[in-house]
Design a protein around this nucleic acid. Structure first.
Lengths: 177, 177
DNA sequence: CGCATATTGACAGTATGCTGTCGAAACGCT
DNA sequence: AGCGTTTCGACAGCATACTGTCAATATGCG
């Protein structure tokens, strides 16, 4: 069967093997998630802009709305690198929206806390977010949103499990060429 | 009714008005989308890393897989700024994965095209993506993914319409403090 | 208690993506 | 044909987020 061997080899090297229907569905789903995420960040920036803030600063403000927290804790909760949050927290402090206190339990750590001005700023953003969320939510419908949220959670779990496996295998990710 | 006026005012300034159930559902949905998007970018980087690439470079490679295109066209299709794509395209060209040709129809424009090496690199990434997509897709199920995709598309349309309204109203977005 | 390990914040460097602006070229409408 | 508008790539600057490294401090185990 030299002929079909050659064809199979040519197919492997010149065109990708096709995905399963479920794989196709997931790929489409992933592209849509990425695209919507971009729009949501834009929208978040727009909601926070009248208060002079951005999505990133809003997220950190919201994390300390109900009680202070260390930068490292906030970063873990948000699933971000410590330094990303540290940078934003320093900016918020520089603009008087938050302040650092010593952590009585840890001499290294500082606890981030909202100032009165930070709280007022957060309230303003939240009010704008409520109008937006209610409007879009009403258009889509609660039932459909809850159903999609369930799928989103399942995919997130599945993808995160895959990531964990790679990490536990001691494979530090590399970048660049 | 001075008493109830005062209470209403206090409520407005000290606590956010509650969202509708649909607004809550949308807010939860949005948070999940953002979180999954982060995971998907990580996964994309991991899939592209063995080929020495990243999510961003992979996206641009894929855009010119079936025929060349100008940077501006690619940017519009991806929903990104022209300069983000230009930067990546220049990097791909510098690494020999793609090349620029003059556009016979437009003296300003350059058409980006895959080199043989770029095509081989893309094939390698696609092979890894197929394995991943088929595995996760099988775990979630095609039906549920398609259903969630429909909701995702509806939300994307709704949010994008809101963005358009702001833009058509001549309201350039501002940043920073 | 003492030492290996983990955590915390600081510093440095890089990748991705956005906005604004400019000159050149293309397009559209009169 | 001519002129205003849009589109294209180039250049500059900023925001967000990641990685790696270091010293100081906490923590856990023998």
């Amino acid at each position: 069967m030299a002929r079909s061997d050659a064809r199979a080899r040519a197919r492997r090297t010149s065109a990708p093997v096709e995905r399963t229907p479920a794989g196709d569905a997931l790929s489409l789903f992933a592209v849509q998630v990425l695209r919507l995420a971009g729009l949501l960040i834009e929208t978040g920036d727009a909601l926070a802009a009248p208060a002079g803030q951005t999505s990133a600063r809003w997220r950190v403000l919201a994390m300390v709305e109900h009680g202070s927290a260390t930068v490292a804790t906030i970063a873990r909760t948000l699933g971000q690198a410590r330094q990303s949050v540290q940078r934003v927290a320093d900016l918020l402090a520089a603009h008087g929206l938050a302040e650092f206190d010593d952590d009585p339990d840890d001499k290294r750590a500082m606890r981030l806390r909202l100032t009165a001005r930070g709280r007022a700023t957060l309230r303003k953003i939240q009010a704008a977010q409520r109008v937006w969320a209610d409007a879009v939510g009403a258009e889509i419908g609660e039932r459909q949103l809850r159903a999609a949220s369930t799928t989103l959670a399942r995919v997130t779990d599945s993808v995160a499990r895959g990531e964990d496996e790679n990490q536990s295998a001691h494979a530090p990710r590399s970048r660049g060429s």
